[in-house]
Simulated assay, not measured.
Amino acid sequence: MQWVAVSLALMAALCLALGTQTQSAAVTAHTQEALKPSNLGSLVRNPKWVAGLVLLGLGTALNVGALTLATVTVVQPIGVIALVITTLLHAKHKHLDINARTWGAISLCTAGSAVFVVAAVAGTDPSYLADPRAEIILVSILIALVLFFGVAELFLRHRRISMFYVLAAGILYGFVAVLVRLTMTHTLAHGLGQIHWFTVIMIVLASVVGGWMVQCAYSCGPPDLVIAGLTVVDPIVGVILGLSVLGEAGPGFTPGIGAIMCLAGGVAIVGVVLLSRHHPEVIERREQAKRLEHELSSKSSPNATEHRKTLNSTREH
């Protein structure tokens, strides 16, 4: 059943990539400034944004199906495949030439993820039943995280720091994946009448807050970098929680498998870092920042203050 889950997760990654690129194009066309809740009305009326939302919804449904059949440790890392697809789609949309370093970074992300998944399949137990106390611990931590990220977003909104949004969304989605897995296994074992509704409410709330963070990240940087961060942060959080809090490690989980998973995860992280430095659009933004800095140093104008604001905003991304 785990390989059926892997197939569902692959289809979910495809929907995630298509939905991400579609929504990102809609958001960036809508505004070049900090995204605000008041902008949601016009986004909802945008057919392209709605189409992206439908694709993301389908991807989420497929991912839930995968989490029903396999552990979080197996399912979540597969999402990195969406990075490759999103990079190709975004390059075509922006008419960007993907350089060799970008391809190398993508290869590291994909290879690291593939090795991670194979090791996870060998070392986890899909038939485990988590201790009920684990759910209480996870929900309590999630409440604190939702409050923290919600307040932080209010203070950091106008600084438009894309990595803050990516990290926040990745962490929240990691908790959501684990709680979805817990809810589905509990429901299959005990029936719909035993669903813990407060957990379901927190899953929905964290998904909404995480979704908003993703929308803000779209307005600050290219979608493939957003996906790169999410498909690494989300699985890392999910795996840590799955192995430590839920006890997903099966009899086949040995120190050797653990070392392989750590090494593979490290390779994927290095790939994301390299992608964030050598992505064509990042290079273009960096060159733009240099040009603005040169203009500020070579002449003084009434618009100097505005130029400095633009330069600082560009550097932050």
Rank of each mutant, 00 (worst) to 15 (best):
H294S: 13
L108K: 11
P223A: 13
G104P: 03
T102R: 03
T102K: 07
L14H: 08
L188S: 07
L167C: 07
I78Y: 03
A91L: 03
S207K: 04
R286I: 12
L10E: 09
G79V: 01
A169N: 14
K36S: 14
T183E: 03
P77D: 01
Q21Y: 08
G79F: 08
I78T: 04
H294G: 10
L188D: 13
G19Q: 12
L263G: 00
G247P: 05
T102A: 07
N312S: 09
A34V: 08
Y128C: 00
R159A: 11
A130C: 05
L275S: 06
G123D: 00
P280R: 01
H93G: 02
I201N: 05
P37L: 02
T87Y: 04
G266I: 08
L225F: 01
D97S: 14
S162Q: 08
S219K: 14
V237N: 06
G238V: 06
G123K: 10
E293D: 11
A5H: 08
A228T: 11
S107I: 13
D224A: 09
I85D: 09
P251R: 13
G271V: 06
H30I: 03
A120V: 06
L55S: 01
M184C: 09
M11V: 13
N39G: 11
P77L: 12
G229R: 12
A9D: 03
A134R: 02
I141H: 09
T20P: 04
S107Y: 08
R277S: 09
I240K: 10
G112D: 04
A130Q: 13
S38C: 01
G193K: 04
H90S: 01
L138I: 15
W49E: 00
L67K: 15
H95F: 00
L147F: 12
A130D: 11
E153W: 08
V208I: 12
T60K: 13
A177F: 10
T102V: 13
L246Q: 05
H190N: 14
T87V: 02
P37H: 08
G79I: 01
F175N: 12
V214H: 00
G238E: 02
C220S: 11
L88I: 15
T87F: 09
G256C: 05
S24I: 00
V214S: 11
A70L: 05
H30A: 04
R157V: 04
L156G: 11
S301Q: 14
I203C: 03
D97Q: 10
G170V: 00
E287V: 03
G191N: 01
S244Y: 10
A228P: 04
E306P: 07
L156S: 05
V239C: 03
Y218Q: 02
